[in-house]
Design a binder for these strands. Structure first.
Lengths: 154, 154
DNA sequence: TTTAATCCCAAGCATTTCGCTTGGTTATCC
DNA sequence: GGATAACCAAGCGAAATGCTTGGGATTAAA
């Protein structure tokens, strides 16, 4: 039935996926001073240099602060409950729109369809936005605690 | 502030975008016999050969029927209210999952994060699914009528 | 004051994916 | 039997992805 195995679409790139995980790591240790790129990269077993690029973006967008030199590292620019998943993903990935037709209102919307499809893309985008803007890093930290407690009880 | 203009992510490919538009065209003229690829392609001003590939996929997934030979063409395999946007997009694009971590449960979920991020991807996916599975081609046709009536009254 | 640790920055680059195009074959109506 | 269509498989240039490379500049600790 599934025939051809196509790549899954509507997929985040590694930027968003690695980046959110990394930010969550920082949230877990928030308040304990800066954490070095190396530590975060090691923990997620991914390239230090690549993660650096993501952190650079996140910093430029005001989600991270950094401390240079030995003993330096990165830290959240504000409290975990003031940073949403949406802010992180949009910083790393750009707009969460299924079609450009939404953002650029430019488009070849032909006469006959009068862009009903556009309505669909808007509904999808709105529903994604609603989810990602409602989850903070703090929420994730709490969910994590719950999951760990759950494990202990087994 | 926006600095680098990154490509928008979580975006559908042309397959999904063209495909849904084309299916909507067929829905508009449902019950009037088969419509040729050429006509649909012309109306959307896109490549006949490319659209053919999309239709081939949609047919294989049971969303379209075809009639070969002269006067032939394509038609919806069932009533517009029995075909959802979700069925179309999944046929053309694959699963609507922001991360493989959801589908393949295989993943490098490290100890410390215990995959809280996975929860986020699941929430995103669920919310997308809810939207696209709740919209039928029939809904789109009706929305289209409303929009056209709105225009006339201006 | 050196040295090691760290952030910072720009460029390059192999691979994969996307968005088609090309060039046919087969079926059906007139 | 000729025109009109659906069917099918392969190829292919351009762009994006997911990194790597190779340097700096800044600072804490020795």
């Amino acid at each position: 039935m599934l025939g051809i195995k196509r790549g899954e679409i509507m997929k985040l790139s590694t930027r968003g996926r690695y980046g959110l995980k990394a930010m969550f790591q920082l949230a877990l240790h928030h308040g304990e001073g800066p954490i070095s790129l190396k530590i975060v990269a090691d923990k997620q077993s991914l390239s230090e240099n690549y993660l650096e690029q993501l952190f650079s973006t996140l910093k430029k967008d005001g989600l991270l602060d950094s401390v240079r030199g030995a003993q330096g590292g990165y830290l959240l620019s504000r409290d975990p409950n003031e940073i949403t998943v949406g802010q992180i993903l949009r910083s790393l990935e750009g707009n969460m729109a299924p079609s450009d037709c939404i953002v650029d209102n430019e488009f070849g919307c032909s006469r006959e369809d009068s862009c009903v499809t556009r309505l669909v893309w808007i509904k999808i985008k709105d529903s994604i936005d609603e989810v990602i803007d409602s989850i903070t890093l703090q929420d994730m930290v709490e969910d994590d605690k719950k999951m760990k407690n759950g494990e202990e009880k087994q």
